[in-house]
């Protein structure tokens, strides 16, 4: 489903991602761990081309993202094509980023209407279904500001689902939440994982990784230090840096 080869990204002189190679199978859940500044978010943002990597390739479902290959060159795609590709890749932000001037249902229906050209009535009907699925059937006409952080993030997940994406990227979806609200968001994500959604999740929730991840990837200083099933990486890390990180997170 997702294939990353030789991905390299730097901001000025600072190399944030170096030679990343990763493969994620369809229907799998990958949890990316790593200390802050290790490049986790940048990796996610390269997968939907919010950041443009200098070298390397990202393929989603066989399709090269953000670039077109002709002989030995990769040509940057036009914005219109990149936007079309992004409709197949959901993205959930740490800070929710709901549109504050639109109601919950309008937030969810906006992209299907404008990017996929779905009829308004159909998009709204589907948006209501999705709100029910994340347990917010009674918040259809609420504005983001009237919702708690956990509710906002659940609307944001419904918004990502509305495009029927092949893949959903989660960038620290629970880091901005009060501790007692983390559970409701993780519950929704658990349902998605069990339903076979392909997910890549950057998080510090080790419990979530242990329970649902097929693969845990540990990133440090822009490199993949180790990866494998959670039982291996979380319980028997081979690398010192992984051990040091886990001991801090689990402490």
């Amino acid at each position: 489903m997702v294939e990353i080869r030789g991905l390299h990204k730097s901001f000025g002189p600072l190399a944030v991602l170096r030679d990343i190679d990763l493969t994620m199978a369809a229907g799998s859940v990958t949890v990316v761990l790593g200390p802050s500044g290790s490049g986790k978010s940048t990796l996610l943002r390269c997968i939907n081309h919010l950041e443009k990597p200098e070298r390397g390739r990202v393929r989603v479902d066989g399709e090269l993202i953000g670039r077109r290959r002709a002989s030995n060159h990769l040509y940057e795609l036009g914005e219109r094509q990149v936007l079309r590709q992004r409709t197949g890749i959901g993205f959930v932000f740490q800070s929710f980023n709901l549109f504050p001037h639109l109601t919950a249902v309008e937030n969810i229906a906006e992209a299907p209407i404008s990017a996929l050209r779905r009829p308004r009535a159909e998009a709204h009907r589907r948006a209501r279904e999705l709100l029910a699925r994340v347990g917010l059937a009674d918040k259809v006409d609420a504005y983001p500001r009237q919702l708690s952080g956990g509710q906002q993030q659940r609307v944001a997940i419904a918004r990502a689902l509305a495009l029927d994406p092949k893949l959903i990227l989660f960038d620290e979806p629970t880091s901005a939440l009060d501790p007692e609200l983390v559970g409701e968001v993780l519950d929704v994500m658990r349902d998605l994982a069990r339903a076979g959604t392909t997910m890549i999740v950057v998080t510090h929730e080790i419990g979530f990784a242990r329970e649902l991840a097929d693969t845990v990837v540990f990133l440090d200083e822009g490199r993949v230090i180790e990866q494998g099933p959670p039982a291996e990486v979380l319980d028997h890390p081979r690398h010192d840096r992984t051990r040091a990180f886990l001991s801090k997170v689990l402490a």
Binding site: N48, R86, F91, F93, N97, L98, F99, A115, A160
Partner: peptide, 19 residues
């Protein structure tokens, strides 16, 4: 981040601006 969210959803450029 509002523009970024709109771009991540694949909303067309002009619509991002207007809506």
């Amino acid at each position: 981040r509002q523009r970024e969210a709109a771009a991540a959803l694949g909303i067309p450029r002009l619509r991002q601006f207007r809506r």
